[in-house]
Design a binder for these strands. Structure first.
Lengths: 207, 207
DNA sequence: CTTCCCGCTTACCACGTGGTCGGGATTCAA
DNA sequence: TTGAATCCCGACCACGTGGTAAGCGGGAAG
């Protein structure tokens, strides 16, 4: 963030050790936030999973809210990068979306993170409230754009507004996460999230 | 619950006053659980909103988990009764569903309750875990049955499994709740939940 | 070798939590 | 009017929370 340059060589902040445990903290925090939510998760628990004390954690992230912001930011970067890579590799927009879902289905912690947090962050004073507002705006925005493209090609089902189609699609992704998580201990009626997304898109497009 | 009968006349448990504050407690708890979630909500806060002390609250509900169970149970009874009434009045199954959504849209507390809690109760050790598992089983079950009926009438879109259609439909309801809650302070891009549900059902049915 | 910063620890703090205990009002039936 | 049940309160408890203060050892840079 600062423009100030280190004395001689351009160097990443801190020592290698510090950067490493910082990453470990982010991993552990992501998992725990997913497991129990942001409010319920404690800094001591995160720290203990990394093998340090909780003031040790606060040395890297000055407060719990700062930790949360870092977790969300990094998580978004990873997903966004993979999504763009799929797009550049020639994949369909919705295919790329489904592939995100598929990848997440293999990492229950991430699914829990976003399902739990997006509900929690519904409160206007939640530290992640603005983050999720912005996130939904961009994702339904770009999905709307995609549906508009399909409509111009005559491939959107008649009588459906592209914006509504987009909202329904992301609603399906969120809603299926809950059904998927809730059925974690009864695998028989556990839905396939990616298949559900594809079925939803198919229902919204014509033919 | 008990079969034991009072001495002479059949009488509701406790005094009138007690039953009244019990109701007040349930109302306040429902709102607060919706606002901040079950874990974050405190018995003292609920009690203070009713104007009593927190041991006073515990006199009516012996523990926090018991309170939660009572809130959910009562909420489900109310919704179920209204739903059945709509059905008996000759309304379409999906119309009746949409009317539930419409009613809830006028009571943000209820929407927050279920959105927050269903995500929270995702954890297997959450006191409401079993409740939500059962709830989803019955609601996607009955919705699946309805879609099967439509399919037999040739009104279900080809290539869509009734069970999948049901899951997508309830996923849309859940997912739209999050988008709706998240946009509470920016009414311009706040979706119409009932309209979304109707659009979703329309997309799943043929013609 | 010295100096400085980084990584992290132990000890501590104020505070909010769910829950318990014992007792004082209030209310109802007899 | 007595007596019992109900309703509710103030005080208390053990515990977990996020955050702070002070310091110590070790690696990096001059």
């Amino acid at each position: 963030m600062t423009t100030q340059a280190p004395p001689s060589t351009a160097r990443a902040a801190g020592y290698a050790r510090g950067r490493a445990t910082r990453e470990e903290i982010l991993d552990a925090a992501m998992l725990l936030f997913g497991e129990v939510g942001y409010h319920t998760a404690s800094l001591r628990e995160v720290a203990s999973r990394v093998g340090i004390s909780h003031p040790g954690l606060l040395h890297h992230f000055s407060s719990k809210a700062v930790l949360l912001a870092a977790v969300l930011e990094r998580r978004d970067e990873v997903d966004e990068a993979a999504f763009q890579a799929d797009l550049d590799a020639g994949h369909d927009y919705f295919d790329a979306l489904a592939r995100i879902v598929e990848r997440n289905a293999a990492r229950p912690g991430i699914v829990e993170l976003f399902a739990t947090l997006s509900a929690e962050a519904t409160s206007p004073d939640h530290p992640a409230h603005a983050f999720f507002q912005a996130r939904y705006r961009t994702v339904v925005g770009s999905t709307t754009a995609e549906f508009e493209r399909r409509r111009d090609e005559g491939r959107l089902r008649s009588g459906i507004d592209p914006d509504m189609a987009a909202r329904l699609t992301v609603a399906v992704m969120d809603g299926m996460q809950i059904q998927w998580l809730l059925a974690a201990d009864t695998p028989d009626d556990r839905p396939d999230m990616a298949e559900a997304l594809r079925a939803q898109v198919a229902a919204l497009l014509s033919d």
